[in-house]
């Protein structure tokens, strides 16, 4: 069983949803992001998404854009992100790691070679924002052959007629983009989620994670209860960004502030038993 499937099965037995926390690799520097990554499981992250910086993140709001800019300035590359995962796996062989980013750096790396290296590093899933189902044959065969899930995105605009196409051959979990918009902006209401999740649930047996606009412990709890997981990204990056000095460098308490927030989110999700 893959780490992703194992983790969701364990949480189901526990009777609660998952907290998926996000960090941008190398934001604001290699050591800080490595420390945050290492600390996340103990702080309560059930799965971890690592953002891979791209110069043109067309689905991201200002928070993630700026994080990517800091990461690129620090020297972030896909190869260095895989090195982070390798490092992480020396101590943690259970927490699923999903890389999230855009297609071009993967094409530049070479999709087949990338999947080989990612699997060897201990990556469990890939979320590629600008790779819709129609173009997924670029990445899905080499990923699947190496046991990596290519996580499909479902949006509010994905209607019932399209849903089966988007879900066909999907694995790992389903990432529900809860708003029509970019990351870190609007938040979906409880009613919107309550209407959307059962619609997707009818079409798939995979766990459903809710992302885009999940910020507070209460929102994370609601998303994890209505669906199977809550993804928190921009709110954590905001905390990191707010902790930096005026040169954009990490301060001594940067890692602690981010992990404290992960703990609060985790508490929220853990209290929201199903």
């Amino acid at each position: 069983m893959s780490r992703i499937a194992a983790r969701f099965a364990a949480l189901k037995a526990e009777g609660r949803g998952a907290l998926i926390t996000f960090l941008e690799a190398w934001d604001p520097d290699a050591a800080t992001s490595m420390a945050i990554l290492r600390g996340m499981p103990a702080a309560g992250a059930d799965l971890i998404e690592i953002g891979c910086a791209f110069t043109d993140p067309m689905a991201d709001g200002p928070t993630v854009q700026l994080a990517g800019g800091r990461a690129l300035a620090a020297g972030a590359t896909l190869a260095r992100t895989l090195a982070m995962v390798r490092e992480f796996r020396r101590e943690d062989d259970a927490t699923p790691i999903v890389l999230m980013g855009y297609l071009n750096p993967i094409l530049s790396y070479d999709p087949v070679r990338f999947c080989t290296d990612a699997a060897a590093a201990g990556v469990d899933g890939l979320i590629v924002v600008d790779l819709p189902t129609e173009e997924a044959d670029l990445l899905v065969p080499p990923a699947r052959a190496r046991g990596i899930d290519v996580i499909r995105l479902v949006a509010p605009t994905t209607d019932d007629a399209r849903l089966p196409l988007v879900l066909e051959g999907s694995s790992g979990f389903i990432y529900y983009v809860s708003i029509t918009g970019i990351t870190g902006t609007r938040t979906a209401s409880g009613a919107e989620l309550a209407a959307a999740i059962p619609r997707i649930r009818k079409a798939t047996d995979l766990p459903i994670a809710v992302g885009f606009g999940v910020r507070s412990p209460a929102q994370a709890a609601e998303a994890a209860r209505t669906a199977d997981a809550a993804v928190v990204a921009s709110a954590l990056i905001d905390t990191l960004a707010g902790s930096l000095d005026d040169q954009g460098r990490a301060r001594p308490d940067t890692v602690r502030l981010v992990l404290d927030q992960v703990r609060m989110l985790a508490d929220g999700v853990r209290e929201a038993r199903k």
Partner: peptide
């Protein structure tokens, strides 16, 4: 039919935009 000119073109957009 996939919007390709040889190997070029296509529809590399986020799922939110695909239906549109």
């Amino acid at each position: 039919s996939r919007g390709r000119f040889g190997e070029f073109g296509g529809r590399f957009v986020a799922e939110t935009l695909m239906p549109l």
